[in-house]
Amino acid sequence: MTLLTGTAITKSYGTTPALRGIDLTVGEGEIVAVTGPSGCGKSTLLHCLAGILRADAGEIRYRDQDIGLWSEAARSRLRRTEFGVLFQFGQLVPELTAAENVALPLLLAGSGRREARAAALVWLDRFGVADLADKRPGAMSGGEQQRCAVARALVTEPRVVFADEPTGALDQLNGEQVLGAMVQAVREQGTSVVLVTHEAPIAAYADREIVLRDGAVDPTGLGVAP
């Protein structure tokens, strides 16, 4: 069943077009990779789909509702409850411990402090960093920080995770371990994923791939101008 549908999504930065009418669907529990060369518009597409950026034209429907028409507050609430967002650099809050970072989305969604911490510890354990629960990001390696960030993106058990180059800052082995654990978790919970990457071995974790070139879907899959 389709969970998320983008139709003719268009977005420009000033006079520079970033997306030129993108159509895509994401099924329930499906992992879709969005790939293509640097500057092809894949991150912009992810930001539009997640409701972080507003598209200039086109429609983004989530569970059959046009979220492009929603207020900023409503879209922000959606991101806290049903969407999980993950970036290349974990973007953990530096003043908070790992457990506090992971518990944060639950607290914002109204969970109690004790309940949120318990859930955070479960997710940190799942990603092999439970022993870092009381450490701040500054005392962790990049790989450890990214494991915490993945735990934070999944702790609310979102329906869709938007991941923008989630392993881009990690070495190959760390990247694989983080991604492998994330894919296993989302498969178990039936979470859909939009995975932005420019690396074929990362895209191979997805069920399907959409290749962009110059802000449009490239039917050749090569993402290179003829």
Binding site: V183, Q184, A200, P201, A203, A204, A206, T220, G221, L222
Partner: peptide, 27 residues
Amino acid sequence: ADRARAYLTAQRAAHMTRLRELTSIKT
């Protein structure tokens, strides 16, 4: 050149399919 591009496109699709199969095996 179109024939060469068509070949490269088909080969790329075959490679991606195999890459997915190998990723499924290892995970």
